[in-house]
Structure formats: structure tokens, C-alpha cells
Design a protein around this nucleic acid. Structure first.
Length: 570
RNA sequence: UGGGGUGUGGUGUAAUUGGCAACACGACGGAUUCUGAUUCCGUUAUUCAAGGUUCAAGUCCUUGCACCCCAGCCA
């Protein structure tokens, strides 16, 4: 979604697939196209991303950010970042800072348009006064419980509040006193006077202001009454000149209210458009559940690499490009779908396959002695950093008499389709030569402890398998963390059979390999850099836990493994 | 049993708005390969149901069905 991704006039036609047909447009683009064709807003497009700073951003927010920012970019419009900070008891500066950082990391750019709903508190108050004067709002003395009793139900209309017909003068005075802190929390509210019999419960005289003697992270103690979401959101959009206010499906029922406030106030009226939020398999996305995972220490924190949070994905090694590509690929619609986690994983594989330099690392070492090599002799082989990109250069890898290979790459009783090492068999050591397994050494318990092999540097021979390896003498021993999906069922939210999402936590979602054996060149791996460990997966040098000369690596994702699939071990 | 939405392959999104159901991912089969990776080629649908209108229906009409959202002084 960066400017470089936006279609230049030249690549538009290439975009068109199947015989010059224009690339398909999602329903929001179609609405905007129509608006522009009709000259609405003077053809202007201005979107925003409006998070509440009460938690960390997750992959579902990324969909919204990419959508909103992408649309602004595509139409040459603007994009605002605005915090919906109307509830001081739930919001914290820590979240504000993290959200700003994450949106920026994802590629969102808002220039000087970083706003807060709290910037508009005074204006909102003035508008409330205006609505009271117009007979469209009133102060209600009902407490929460009484208000619920008056609201009615889904099938029965509500009853008017006994305070609904107060005089304008009295309402004005009461609102002023509310603001002045004359009343305790919850004792009074300011309500819009709409229709207690509306089939849409949001229209049954919704609350505009509630009393909360709470310290706000931005406005401090200036206010003890705070505007509700419904009374704030549309007007904030309006003030900022937003043209298309894009939100998720659950706000569809609020649109009549959004429209009502803009209309009654006679202010710029943005168009609210709702789309389906992202659901992903094998994870949870609700703030409450994410918070619970962190609070009860089921994960190490908001940035735990297993979390679907932006911070977790970052720590896992995901690139912003791959997340954007993912958001692009899943599309935008109103159908409440669930995307397979595999799509996200494919998106990083695709990106990292292009950019990650290759290296060799042995996770579960099995010692191999190359009996025809002299002890103390070090040969050097040159290995390409990327098989398809010679321009990425080569690196030197030491080869000695004793090396480590992966335990999985040797099998005593191998099935015919096993292309790796077996007794008496040949296998290619990636980049070095071919070895033949002459002898299998076992301990008293019968477990294989080492292999004796002959090395042959004839590169021309054809052998079926190639395996990775590391010189035992030169190996860099370090910690590698193998992450897997946090939950072991596609839909952890499924609460049937009396289970909760916590019952579906995957006990194997993290495996720490304390001393994996990496090729020595990796000692220089910069924290935050990414590699493909050939035949194993993509890894990210943890920016927090890595030490100079000793990187700690997080597995971002495995490589596709058709052997594991065939062998039923995937 | 009120109101608001949504139903197209295994998954997700399209369909020039009534004109040959397309694209992507996966899966499966094959080719290439010093990564069982990558790459390449092929296969992969009675459009929720039943009626109706029409030369022609995913699209229009009728009647159903399923699923999601709403009874916070949360957003």
C-alpha cells in the first residue's frame, strides 16, 4: 500500500486479467467510484483509522488500516489516525504509543493528521447545548438499571423516561451542573430525544454523555462527563472532513444514529460503510481474550510471537509487506468469513522466499564423522546466499571431519521414498559433496549416537537427496525458538461442550531448542534480520534477546514440506 | 416470535449490473531442481432451497431456510 505499490498509469492494463478485463473492484471501491462520478465531496476521498487506545492492534486491525490507507492512497486522498478516546477508565497512554508505532510500521502515513476524539470535547459539548436548545436532547435522572427497564426488549417498545419533557432551561442548567461535577457517577445522563419505540434499540434515546469522575490520559481532570461513542464518532469524522467512514459490520445498526446526529446538527455528513471484520483460524481476535492470554500468562506478553497482534507478528518475523499482501489478498466484503491461517503463513513465505538470505542450521544434531578427512583439517566451501539470486553473493562455510546433520535426515529402516541418509546410502551435503554412510554407532540403549561416513567431493554424481549440515568445530550454539499455532483447533471461540478458548491452547505452540547448531557466519546476524535456514524454515533474529555474536532466533514459519505431509508427520 | 445484515468450489474474492461462472490460495497429479523449498504445467462448481418471469437468471419476482449483529452510562 506504499506509494510505490499504487498503480502507475502504466501498469493498469497489466493488472487487467483475462483478456483486457479491468481488475475487479471491491464494493467499497465501487461506492467511491460512484460518489466521485456523481461529484460528491468534490471528488475528494478522505479516510481514517479510529482505534480506541484500550489494547494492542491485531491482524484484524491491519485489515482495516490497509483498507483505509490503501483507499486514500489509491484515490490520491488523505488518511487520518484518530484515537477514539472517550472512555478514560479503559484507555492508557501505553496503548496510544504502541498503536502509533504499529500503524506506522505497517506503512500507514498520516502526516500531521494525528487526532484524538478528546480534541473535540469542547465542540461536542457546544453541539450538545445546541441539541438541547432544539429540543432534541434532555438530561435523564434514571440510573443504569432503571434505564434498562425503560428500554424495552427486542420485541417490545420502550417507555419514555419521566424526564424526557424537561424544559430547555432546566436541561441546560442540569448539563452545566453535570459538567461542573455536581453529581456522582452514573446518577444522570444526557440523552438524545429520538424514539423509545424504534425497532432499532440504538435509536431509543441513546446516551450522549455520562458522568465519570475519571482522569483522562490527555485531558486530565478537565472533564467529569464524557461523550459516548455514538455521540462522538460521526461528529469527529465530520470535523476532520472524512468522506467515507469505514467500519465493521456490528456498527451497521448504529448508522441511523450516526446519520441522525450529522443531520440534526447540520454538519458535514460523511458516509459510513461497513465491512466484515477479519476472522482467522487457529487464533482468537477479541480484545478481551487477547488481554486474558496476556494477563493470565498463557503467553509472554502482547508481543509474544504466537499472538495475532501486530507486535506479536513483528516479533515473530513477519514483514509489513507480507501483512499488506495478505490484507490485499483476502479482499473486502460484507460476508462474515473466516480466513485460513495458512494464507497468512503463505504470505510471509512468499515475501521471505524473495528476500531472506539462506543459511544452514541444525536444530536436532546428529554427529557425523567423515572418516576420510583429516582431523584438524578445515576445508572451505562457498555457498550462494540465494539460489535464484546470484547478485546476493556467496559466503564461506567451513567443512571439517566432524559435522552435525539433522536427526530427521537419517533413518535406519528407511522407506523406499526416503531420499535422505540411510545405512550404506548416499546423500549430498548441500554445497559440499556427497557422503556415504558406512557405519552406524549406537549407545548401550541402542540409540544412534553418531555416523561414520566417507566424503566424496565429486559434485557431478547424481544423488536423490540433499541435506544441510554444520561443522561441529565451528558451529555456533544458540537458542532457537520454534513457534507453532497458539490453538490446536480451527475455531478456539467455539464454546460448545462447555469449553472455553483456553481449553484449546496448543501445548506445543513453543519449543525452545537451547543449543541449535548454526553455521558460523550467523554469529554476525543483526538483531531484526531474517534468514531462511535451508530445508527448515524462515527465522528472525530476536531484537530483544539476541546478544552480540549470539543471536537468538525465532521461527517465523516453516518451509512447505511435502515429505512431512506424505509421511504423515506434518 | 422486532429490526438490521449476509449466503457463489476446500478457502477467500469476482462476474462488464440479465449474456460462455473468472481470479487467487489450497489440495491432487506431473516436470524442473545441489533446499522433498522455489519455479513451471495440468485437474479441481447443479451459485442456500423451491417455485416463477425471460430466448437467456448468480443477477429480476415470490416463498422459505441457514448464519451473523443489536436490549453497556463499551467501542
Amino acid at each position: 500500500m506504499a506509494a510505490a505499490d499504487a498503480s502507475s498509469p502504466d501498469d493498469r492494463p497489466e493488472n487487467a486479467k483475462s483478456g483486457g478485463r479491468a481488475a475487479s473492484r471491491n464494493f467499497i471501491q465501487q461506492i467511491i467510484d460512484a460518489d466521485r462520478a456523481a461529484g460528491k465531496n468534490g471528488g475528494r476521498v478522505h479516510t481514517r483509522f479510529p482505534p480506541e487506545p484500550n489494547g494492542y492492534l491485531h491482524i484484524g486491525h491491519a485489515k482495516s488500516i490497509c483498507l483505509n490507507f490503501g483507499l486514500a492512497n489509491e484515490y490520491g486522498g488523505k488518511f487520518n489516525l484518530r484515537f477514539d478516546d472517550t472512555n478514560p477508565v479503559k484507555e492508557e497512554q501505553e496503548y496510544v504509543d504502541a498503536i502509533i508505532d504499529d500503524v506506522h510500521w505497517l506503512g500507514g502515513e498520516w502526516d500531521d493528521r494525528l487526532f484524538h476524539a478528546s480534541d473535540y470535547f469542547e465542540q461536542l459539548y457546544d453541539w450538545a447545548v445546541q441539541l438541547i436548545k432544539a429540543g432534541k436532547a434532555y438530561v435523564c435522572d434514571l440510573n443504569a438499571e432503571e434505564m434498562r427497564a425503560h428500554r424495552g426488549t427486542l420485541t417490545e417498545p420502550g417507555k419514555n423516561s419521566p424526564h424526557r419533557d424537561r424544559s430547555v432551561k432546566e436541561n441546560l442548567e442540569l448539563l452545566e451542573q453535570m459538567r461542573a461535577g455536581k453529581f456522582p457517577d452514573g446518577s444522570r445522563t444526557l440523552r438524545a430525544k429520538i424514539d423509545m419505540a424504534s425497532p432499532n434499540l440504538n435509536m431509543r434515546d441513546p446516551v450522549m454523555y455520562r458522568i465519570k469522575h475519571a482522569h483522562h490520559q490527555r485531558t486530565g481532570d478537565a472533564w467529569c462527563i464524557y461523550p459516548s461513542y455514538d455521540y462522538t464518532h460521526g461528529q469527529s469524522d465530520s470535523i476532520e472532513g472524512i468522506t467515507h467512514s469505514i467500519c465493521t459490520l456490528e456498527f451497521e445498526n448504529h448508522r441511523p444514529l450516526y446519520d441522525w446526529f450529522c443531520r440534526e446538527l447540520g454538519i458535514h455528513h460523511p458516509q459510513q460503510i461497513e465491512f466484515a471484520r477479519l476472522n482467522l483460524t487457529y487464533t482468537v481476535m477479541s480484545k478481551r481474550k487477547l488481554l486474558e492470554l496476556v494477563r493470565d500468562k498463557h503467553v509472554a506478553g502482547w508481543d509474544d510471537p504466537r499472538m495475532p497482534t501486530i507486535r506479536g507478528l513483528r516479533r515473530r518475523g513477519y514483514t509489513a509487506e507480507s501483512i499488506r499482501a495478505f490484507c490485499e489478498r483476502i479482499g473486502v466484503a460484507k460476508f462474515n468469513s473466516t480466513i485460513d491461517m495458512g494464507w497468512l503463513e503463505d504470505a510471509v513465505r512468499e515475501d521471505l522466499n524473495e528476500r531472506a538470505p539462506r543459511a544452514m542450521a541444525v536444530l536436532r544434531p546428529l554427529k557425523v564423522v567423515l572418516t576420510n578427512l583429516k582431523a584438524g583439517e578445515t576445508r572451505t566451501v562457498e555457498a550462494p546466499n540465494h539460489p535464484q539470486k546470484p547478485e546476493l553473493g556467496v559466503r564461506k562455510v567451513p567443512l571439517t571431519r566432524e559435522i552435525y546433520i539433522e536427526q530427521d535426515d537419517f533413518m535406519e529402516d528407511a522407506p523406499k521414498k526416503f531420499f535422505r541418509l540411510k545405512p550404506g546410502g548416499d546423500v549430498r551435503l548441500r554445497g559440499a559433496g556427497i557422503i556415504t554412510c558406512d557405519e552406524v554407532v549406537k549407545d548401550a540403549a541402542g540409540a544412534v549416537t553418531e555416523l561414520h561416513c566417507t566424503f566424496d567431493d565429486d559434485h557431478s554424481r547424481k544423488v536423490k537427496g540433499t541435506i544441510h549440515w554444520v561443522s561441529a568445530e565451528h558451529a555456533l550454539s544458540t537458542e532457537v525458538r520454534l513457534y507453532d499455532r497458539l490453538f490446536n483447533v480451527p475455531n478456539p471461540d467455539d464454546a460448545s461442550e462447555g469449553k472455553t478458548f483456553l481449553d484449546h491452547l496448543n501445548p506445543d505452540s513453543i519449543e525452545v531448542v537451547a543449543d541449535a547448531k548454526l553455521e558460523p557466519s550467523l554469529a554476525n546476524a543483526e538483531p531484526g534480520s531474517r534468514y531462511q535456514f535451508e530445508r527448515v524454515g524462515y527465522f528472525y533474529a530476536d531484537p530483544l534477546d539476541s546478544q552480540p555474536g549470539r543471536p537468538v532466533l525465532n521461527r517465523t514459519v516453516t518451509l512447505r514440506d511435502s515429505w512431512a505431509k506424505a509421511a504423515g508427520t506434518a
